[in-house]
Amino acid sequence: MNGERKDPLGKRLEPWFFISPSLLLLLAVGLYPTVFVLYYSFQNWTMGMGPPVFAGLDNYINALTSSEFLGSLQTSGLFLLITLPVELVLGMAIALALDQTRNRTLRRLVQVLLVVPIATTPSVVGMLVQLMFNTQLGIVNYFGHGFGLSQIDWLGSASAAFGMITATQIWEWTPFVALVLSASLATVPGEIEEVLTLDTESFWARFRYIKLPYMRPGIVASLVFQTIFTIKTFDMIYSIEKGGPGNATVTVSLNIERVAFRGFDVGLASAESVLTLVVTILLAQAVVSFLYPARKGAGA
């Protein structure tokens, strides 16, 4: 009679009531540290040397003119530029190989094995790499010597050390990409694949027109996560090389740790953290925009 009856206020607040504990927790855990870092990025504060003093943009100016910070960003950029495509290609190859496998037991076994590198604590990975690739004491050179190979200095030069952390990162995170893409491939409807199999025997055609489109969300998710993970990488690099030799493996995370906990300069470290966060968001956004270009008229 009265047309649509409006829900009472209590009814409308009901979802908020249920969601509020998680929301508050998320705000406390996620937002508070970010606000804290943002606040201190505008303060001049060295721990143990008096209280914080407002510094305006000084910390940002110092960060953007610091050769250490810019150098570490460059190292992280190179690290990302090498690891990301390699992880994607290898991860995709593993996912496709798993998809082709008809043996279910083998597929399950490989999937479980793929979890091992991801689940291993990065500092333990770093320690194992350091032990295995030690020039004199490591097992890799020991076996190499057995095959008549000369001793390789895996960790002792700037380029070798950077190569080693890059290889370790790829070893550790390729399985993540493989598992995500494998999950995407599992969403390909069987009948579509069957139809195309009847239509063409070309692997490339099936890949290009069926599998790749279904993998696209997985690729985007992998690349976004991997961009974030790679820029954040700390423990593995620290336990292998501590940033050395020289500053060959000082990535942006290691540099921020140095500023924050060696120099105890909380203000500068916070500004560098904020800038790194901005760079990470921009990179992640770039990945999404590249793989999901905005379509004209979409949504109209």
Binding site: Q130, N134, T135, Q136, L137, Q151, D153, W154, L155, G156, S157, A161, E241, G244, P245
Partner: peptide, 16 residues
């Protein structure tokens, strides 16, 4: 010195 000494810490030289 042994090759790779730049990456060696206390435990490695003691082990050597």
């Amino acid at each position: 010195m042994p090759k790779g000494i730049i990456a060696d810490d206390h435990s490695q030289v003691v082990q050597l």
